[in-house]
């Protein structure tokens, strides 16, 4: 079962890319930049969760990833509405 280890390695690599995105989240000059970085981190988190589900053989991780994808989408929409100036 060499396959499982490779999924773990890929998940660690994606976590490193998440760190790079968090850098933009920290230095981003405007709120929109930070929101874009957060959206990217959300996508990477979903992918990483699916990979970890395969690495540990736990289907529950993938279920959490599905729910996380939908909830983070709603969060992104609300942030976008805030950027528009709609939530006063």
């Amino acid at each position: 079962m060499i396959g499982e280890l490779s999924f773990g390695v890929a998940a660690v690599v994606l976590a490193a890319f998440m760190g790079v995105s968090v850098l933009r989240l920290a230095i981003g000059p405007t709120a929109a930049d930070r929101a874009v970085a957060l959206d990217t981190v959300n996508t990477l988190v979903v992918t990483t969760m699916v990979l970890l589900g395969a690495a540990f053989g736990q289907v529950v991780y993938v279920d959490v990833a599905i729910v996380y994808a939908l909830l983070s989408f709603v969060g992104t929409l609300y942030i976008a509405r805030y950027l528009e100036g709609g939530l006063k």
Binding site: T30, V36, D39, L70, F73, A80, Y82, L83
Partner: peptide
């Protein structure tokens, strides 16, 4: 992910432009 990702980024771009 395929459904939500482009929609979310579209909403962000629109929000940024209106902002």
């Amino acid at each position: 992910l395929l459904l939500t990702n482009p929609t979310g980024s579209h909403a962000l771009a629109r929000g940024a432009h209106r902002g």
